[in-house]
Write a protein that binds this DNA or RNA. Structure first.
Lengths: 189, 189
DNA sequence: CTAAACTTTCAGAAAATACTGAAAATACAA
DNA sequence: TTGTATTTTCAGTATTTTCTGAAAGTTTAG
């Protein structure tokens, strides 16, 4: 509850970054606080640690819950709620990305879908329609890929990331070894 | 310059999404306008199309330039500047992601680096330090991976995305076929 | 039930962000 | 040069977002 200067700095930094990550300062600070704390904290603990109002804490907790970044813990014989980070750093990151995709990609994708549907008979300049189609296809590709990645085991995903673009080389080789379907999907320079 | 209702809607949508994508409404709208326009537009065209002030347009143009999302075109014998989207949808998306990484990841990574350095002699609770280290490692992994992806040819990257988690299967197989270095990196369940 | 302990809500205040429009600066043709 | 067309800047205003704190709501022990 009493924070070292170093921790305090990190928490303030997370607060600053909060808005860039899709939430507000308080939510960012509280997420940091709970991630760095080795024990669950009560709402009052949080308000005191960060010098913010109790109401603000309550709203931010709701937000963190809606992002599934925290969970509530109750001690028998104690009326207070205690809060802690809902998983490992990896899991929390996945959760943040998932939620951001929902807010930053999905609405546009569905907008594009309906526009491209609706204007079957073209009342739109050709170039505009084409660009819309391209954005649509890109977002759709991204969405499927993202889904797939979310469902991979963390170790596998990490291994894949470590491989980086090396994966391209491996795939080209594999492609040569396996003369079957989907060859076209690999592309060639 | 005179927009169909359909286009108008998409542009308004991009405006709404703007703040979630890291810029403001005007910048979002102008990006959409220029992406959908099949010819370069002058600042006055833009201000008129979107019913916003000339000053606002000027500031948003500066912002779009700093993101490298637009470029300026000049007609000989015409004093006006004309603006257009700086590349294909794919290139623009890459540019946006690149810039967002700079703003959303890099500052935190460097903050973590210096904190983890500085507090070599531990004045920080063990758990907090460990969490910081995990966040650091994750962001670093992400950064390298992201860099690698940015440098791949678009066709290759697209092919890779289309493959989705199928890539995992292919890699496991490859791993069995190639009994050499880095095997550990693939992981195993 | 009642009262204490705790949480949530929300109207209004404060802070942060975006936008306007007029003035200053710049670019260019003659 | 000078005059005109164009762009940029920025002080002030408007809008949006966040935060506070008091009141209303909820839960639970007795």
């Amino acid at each position: 509850m009493k924070l070292t200067t170093e921790l305090e700095n990190m928490i303030l930094h997370f607060g600053e970054m909060g808005s860039r990550w899709g939430f507000n300062r308080t939510v960012g600070q509280m997420l940091a606080l709970l991630v760095f704390s080795d024990e669950p904290l009560s709402a009052d603990d949080i308000a005191a640690s960060l010098s913010i109002s109790r109401g603000n804490v309550s709203m931010a907790l709701k937000e963190l819950h809606s992002w599934r970044l925290i969970r509530t813990h109750r001690e028998p014989g104690d009326r207070k709620d205690y809060f802690l980070a809902n998983g490992t750093i990896w899991e929390l990151s996945q959760q943040v990305l998932e939620e951001r995709k929902k807010r930053e990609v999905d609405p546009t994708l569905s907008m594009l879908r309906s526009q491209l549907m609706a204007s079957e008979q073209d009342e739109m300049p050709h170039h505009a329609r084409q660009q819309m189609q391209e954005i649509h296809d890109l977002l759709e590709l991204f969405n499927h890929w993202f889904d797939d990645m979310q469902h991979m085991k963390p170790e596998h995903l990490q291994a894949l990331m470590r491989l980086g673009s090396g994966v391209g080389k491996v795939l080209e080789m594999t492609d040569r070894l396996r003369p079957n379907k989907k060859k076209k999907a690999i592309g060639n320079d």
